[in-house]
Structure formats: structure tokens, C-alpha cells
Design a protein around this nucleic acid. Structure first.
Lengths: 252, 252
DNA sequence: CGCAGCGCTTGATCCGCGTCATGGATTGAT
DNA sequence: ATCAATCCATGACGCGGATCAAGCGCTGCG
């Protein structure tokens, strides 16, 4: 159903207007600390802002990129949620992760030089689009950007390893909720009340569970007073307990 | 059992002797294409060789680094096998991966700025040791190095995702053997006959299986004529069949 | 020599979670 | 209004692989 229509574009960002709405968006971005003029000389920042292109709005089901396409750009999510997933030889989907505002998409494509997965909007999505060659070139002149890229890449290795471990359904589900809460919190959203932008089936897939199991565990968590679930709205009532459940998975 | 003795050191590499045994080692390394003088100006290469320190021999059980230690260096395996593993809150080991000659260790530590895992020699190991800050600085002057680091980091994201998927024991075991074979082949070793440098329990742990299951599956593969197993020596008799079994997991 | 300890294998049993089946609630198309 | 499609929930059942248990071969040590 999802179509191949060319992705919509905002007006390309004008380097001159970088201090208006930009700041509000960028302050939550993974690149915020290098994009925003915090103790950094203005002209260099212009270079970065110049190579950013705003993309959106995309709608649920739209593809940001597709598996196999030539890699040229990485994206930062400005609003909405993006899922990345691979389709294996058997045609089964394998969801690699969900990307919230402020998080990057496409870093796993640098090596193969082709996108190894699909990136799909789960709701209305706005993105910043970076030409990776241009960014890499800029990074040689701006060590902060190089460092930030190294950190982002390295962090993604850790994230990928988190849910790869040998843990049971309860632990994985708890870890998923807690990690989600932490990521929302890091971007300035509520850490205890949020809305799941993905269907149960996608959560299940990502956690290597059956959708039925996700339903049952959410029910059990609710019965135990750990959370409150209403459709896709979740409230963490006992974040500490949840964290305790997930402690084997969560980073240090 | 494994001790905290300071790691042994080779004589620091002398920039002047970089064309003797060095070439043989380096030609199999992940950094080989940038370390070796292939179409690259000599003086710049000297810079890279200067910041490399040779480490070894380490012996089975020796730690290269430990979880929680401050991150400063990444390592390339020159000989032997290194495993990286985390110990969770419950004290259970979680093996992230095995690193063969020519592969890098420590890239997942850039972000937290501390090593998130232990790195342990499985047999007699020789390493090249790179100061990461120095390497990053050099990378700003040598775009090839920056690119190579980006590629290595990005590739590790993909590797971490490979075995994270939802696959059964047969598929994971087959994928493990095939990936191992490919990695040996990429370094110039035989792709069909090799020796497992890790115990069954470590393979099992890495694949989220019980050691008993690993034994049984290897047995079954042998009964089916796919492989021949003798202790830790493995011969792939039907690499195509194995690859077929693992096709859901393997990249591209 | 005898014994302990470890790695590995193999068989028997058990359980977590997948699968299957059913039904309700929504949504959107006709 | 009707129907199809999607998403979610919940119960019944079965299977893959963990766990338990036992035994073998090897190594190191008293």
C-alpha cells in the first residue's frame, strides 16, 4: 500500500533564518550540540546549516528510503517516529528499531554503501536530511562534528546489542518501555506518559515476540499496577519496578 | 582465574621498519587499506604507523580491557581470537562477539567513553593498539582514515543486528558457521576448514542457546553431511547448503 | 595411581512462548 | 447501512529449546 511518491520537501533551510523555529527543533536533536550556536564560531555553523535540507511532512507508511538504494544521506528525525526494518529472504519483516525526534536514521548504511533496511514513517514525520559525503567533508574541518558522528555510530552499536541478548519476554518488554521513557525524557517529553506510535505487532516483532505475548504482558503489567495502558497511551506507574525488571538488559 | 597482570608489550613499532613483517600482518587487517602504502603518500602513512603500538602476546583468559574502564584506545587483532562480553546484573555473561585477526575491538566504547564490555583473549593474541584521540585527530587530516572509521563503525551496527533477529537454533548456528567462514576467507584463511577458538559454551552463549543445543545441532549437521566436526576443528562439507539454511540471517 | 575438574555429548523431561482460533472494537470504502 | 480490513485481546494447545541428569574422555595434581 505504501507508495513510492517522491518525498515532500520543506523550503530548503535558509541559512539566514537559523535562529527562529530552528532552535526549538534543533535543541532536541542528536546533532543539536553541534548544530546550535553554542560556543561555536558562527561561520562554521553556517556551513552545517547549509547542508541540511528539511524534509516533510511524510505520512504513516511513507518510505524515507528503501533497502538496496544507494546510500547518500543520513536523516535526523525532527518530529514523528520512524521505524527501520529488513525483509528477509522468506519475506518476513525484522524491525531493527524505532527512531524518535532527535535521533538519527541511516547510520547503518555507511558501510555497505547501500541502505540495508527500509525506513518507514509511523505517523506524520519531519526530517533533517544530511548529505553524508558533505557531512564527512565538513567533519574534517570541524572536529566536533567528526566526534559527534563517531559517538552516534558507536552508540548505535550498543543499542543494537541491547535487545540482542538472551532475555525473557517480561524483561524485554520492560526494557522496551523503560528505554522508550528514557529517550522521551532525553528529548524533553514526559518520561511517564507517552503514546506508542507503533502497533502492537511492530513492538512484538522488534522484541522477537508474538503480538499475543505483547498483549498479555502489557495486561499483566497493568494488573500488577506497573503501568496503565489505554489503547496506545501508556503511563508508567512504577518506573522503578519496571527498571528493576529490565535491569539485566539496560546499560550500566 | 584470569588475572589483571599488565598486558605485555612488543617493542613499540619503529616507523623505519614498516616494510618487513609489518606488511604480512597488516595486509589482513581491517585498517590494512589505509595503513599499507597503497597509493598513499609515504609521510602521511608514517603518522599512522607512529601511533600504532604492538601488544602481545596475551594468553587465553587475559583481559585486553575491562568493562567500566576509561576508553582511550581501540585495538586491531593481529593474531588469535578475542571475545567481548558483558556481565549483567545477575552475573550472567553475555557474549557480544568474537574478533578474528584483522578485526577491530573497542569501537562500541566511543560513545559511553568507557568500555561497556570486557575483551578477553581466547588463545594467544597479538594486537595493534591505537590511541583513539590520536587516531581521530589524524583522521581530520587523512579523510581515508576518517572514512574507514565510519565504515568500521557502521559495519559493526550491522553485525550486531544480524544475530539479534528472531531465528531458530538451526538458522543461528548455520549463520554462525557461514559468517565465520566468510571472515576467515576475507583474511586469507581457508573458508572450509578452520578451528573454533572458543568453547561450545561461548558459542552457545553468543547465539542465545544452551550448550547442549549447540552440541546437538553440530551433531545433526554432521549426520546430514553438512559439516565434519572433530573436537574444535570444523570442516564445511556443504557450504552452499549451510548458507541456504542461514539465508534469512545473512546480509544481502 | 586415583581422584577431581572441566569440556563435551546424549537422553529424558519440562516450560515459556508461539500458534491457532475466536471475538470485539474501529475505521474506511462503497 | 454494510462489508472488509486492521488492530487488539484472550483462551486452548503444542513445540522448540532450556533444564536436568548421567556418562565419557582428557588434563592436572596430590
Amino acid at each position: 500500500m505504501s507508495n513510492i511518491k517522491p518525498i515532500g520537501r520543506f523550503a530548503p533551510s535558509n541559512p539566514g533564518d537559523g535562529d527562529g523555529d530552528e532552535v526549538r527543533f534543533c535543541s532536541t536533536c542528536a546533532f543539536g550540540e553541534v548544530c546550535l550556536p553554542v560556543g561555536y564560531d558562527k561561520p562554521a555553523l553556517m556551513d552545517l546549516h547549509c547542508l541540511v535540507e528539511h524534509v516533510g511532512p511524510l505520512h504513516a507508511g511513507d518510505h524515507i528510503f528503501r533497502s538496496g538504494e544507494k546510500f547518500e544521506t543520513i536523516f535526523a528525525v525532527r518530529a514523528g517516529t520512524v521505524k527501520t526494518s529488513m525483509i528477509d529472504e522468506e519475506g518476513r519483516e525484522q524491525i531493527l528499531g524505532f527512531h524518535l525526534p532527535g535521533e538519527m536514521v541511516g547510520l547503518n548504511a555507511i558501510h555497505p554503501a547501500r541502505y540495508p533496511c527500509d525506513a518507514i514513517a509511523l505517523d506524520t514525520v519531519y526530517l533533517c536530511r544530511f548529505s553524508f559525503p558533505a557531512l564527512a567533508t565538513l567533519a574534517t574541518r570541524m572536529p566536533e562534528i567528526q566526534q559527534q558522528l563517531f559517538r552516534l555510530l558507536s552508540a548505535d552499536i550498543g543499542k543494537a546489542a541491547l535487545l540482542a541478548g538472551d532475555h525473557n519476554a517480561n524483561e524485554r518488554m520492560a526494557a522496551f518501555l523503560v528505554l522508550l521513557a528514557d529517550r522521551f525524557a532525553a528529548r524533553g517529553f514526559s518520561a511517564t506518559r507517552f503514546r506508542l506510535s507503533m502497533p502492537r505487532g511492530d513492538i512484538a516483532n522488534h522484541l522477537r515476540l508474538a503480538p499475543e505475548t505483547v498483549s498479555r504482558i502489557l495486561r499483566r503489567f497493568q494488573d500488577q499496577g506497573l503501568i496503565r495502558v489505554d489503547e496506545r497511551d501508556v503511563e508508567l506507574l512504577q518506573p522503578g519496578q519496571l527498571r528493576q525488571l529490565a535491569r539485566c538488559i539496560l546499560p550500566g
